[in-house]
Design a binder for these strands. Sequence first.
DNA 1: CGCCTATTTGAACCGGGTCAAGCATTGTGG
DNA 2: CCACAATGCTTGACCCGGTTCAAATAGGCG
Lengths: 237, 237
Amino acid sequence: MSYNCASCENDSCLIKKNLNYINNLDPNITDQKHTIQCKKSRQFIMEGAPVNGLYFIYSGKVKVIKTGYNGKEQILRLSKDGEVIGHRGFGMGETYKIGATAIEDTILCNFSSSLLKEILLSEPKVTFDFMHFYANELNRSETKVKTMSQMTVREKVIDMILYIYRKFGNHDDGTIGLELSRKELADYAGTTDEQVIRILSALKKEQLIYTKAKLIKILDLSKLKKEIAEHNFFLDS
Amino acid sequence: MSYNCASCENDSCLIKKNLNYINNLDPNITDQKHTIQCKKSRQFIMEGAPVNGLYFIYSGKVKVIKTGYNGKEQILRLSKDGEVIGHRGFGMGETYKIGATAIEDTILCNFSSSLLKEILLSEPKVTFDFMHFYANELNRSETKVKTMSQMTVREKVIDMILYIYRKFGNHDDGTIGLELSRKELADYAGTTDEQVIRILSALKKEQLIYTKAKLIKILDLSKLKKEIAEHNFFLDS
DNA sequence: CGCCTATTTGAACCGGGTCAAGCATTGTGG
DNA sequence: CCACAATGCTTGACCCGGTTCAAATAGGCG
């Protein structure tokens, strides 16, 4: 099975979106990409390893991490189809500063550094879109810095729930169809799994959410938002 | 006094560095920038205000902040001559997500969104450099997320000292010529000023640093580095 | 010199991390 | 198909680091 860009339906993918510009160079240029099947739990980018291009998610879900003190993971973001992984992937001779692991079976499109550089150095519209993407991610990340340093654990957990709801939630019934372990939730929120469990239990008791095993369902979105609102005078979008 | 780009000596400035590419469009294009004098303590970018382009630091020093719960500031980074401020400055109709304040008398070069967009959409080499800049900043920021969520206060303070030493330090005699208040140090490290003071006192007692008023001098760089080394298996550069 | 602000130190309190034990769930082999 | 092991989830109790409050001292500036 081939996953060529022309027939791809991820309109938010930076490559797909700009395919007409990219094809100016060579109508078959995207055939040079590699498609990679990736089973759940498989880590496909290792921190410190030499870069070999960027990964675009064709389908599936991915967590992006940095490893800290005695192996404790910090989940930086969760990505889904159409998104890009691997900041430094276009420089040569560098190493990845992040790790990436599939949290579901995932199909990845890998563009080599040289191929990508060729595209980016000749099609400014594409490069501009990439720049925009990184500027946006930078803003997200800087908001997370503030979150980490100023919020209480309860607020961090609520912030996390709202994040995964925004990104993976079913906005009709309030369910979040994302299977993360308590430990992974803690790794995102920057706390311990016990703490996450305690907060989830409390929120359950307060009728703000419902949980059943790994399923989380939001019952009162506005109350949750309200609780962290004072931190977010200048919200991201 | 005019500060035109041709005679500017900030070779690390993204505009100056690429001046020959930019002049392809129009040899006088950079004359359209505005030069702004900015006294110490003056905030020249307000969070939430509509964007009016990017600011390049011609000379001086700047802190970039986000405001959080009941006005508590988080300093995201400290910038000096040659660097860029204002992530979102090239989109139209957006608002700044960060604030920026001069921490010394500063001269800024302001490029409007439209001017910058014109340049970026026609000179891919310039756009590529900007993209690289944001990708690097993203990495820095993500490292700081981990720092904030995993380090102890003592480690955060040491991390901060090493950061300002790397950026503003005199590497011959170990002094850091940067006048920040204890509160500003705390705002960067993500803690309180009392805590910063306590840690500085302790480090002084341990002969790792010397302080006199706002001056900080590093006495034992390797011991300081060693103390946070286990957090940084995969260091940034 | 005197006022005001920044810095420093001490003490009390509390949030959150750590440890430990019980419970639920899933998977594996007999 | 069941027993049992292994892993993940949940809750309680304790303790420590870090924030908050308060008071004393030093430093900067008119």
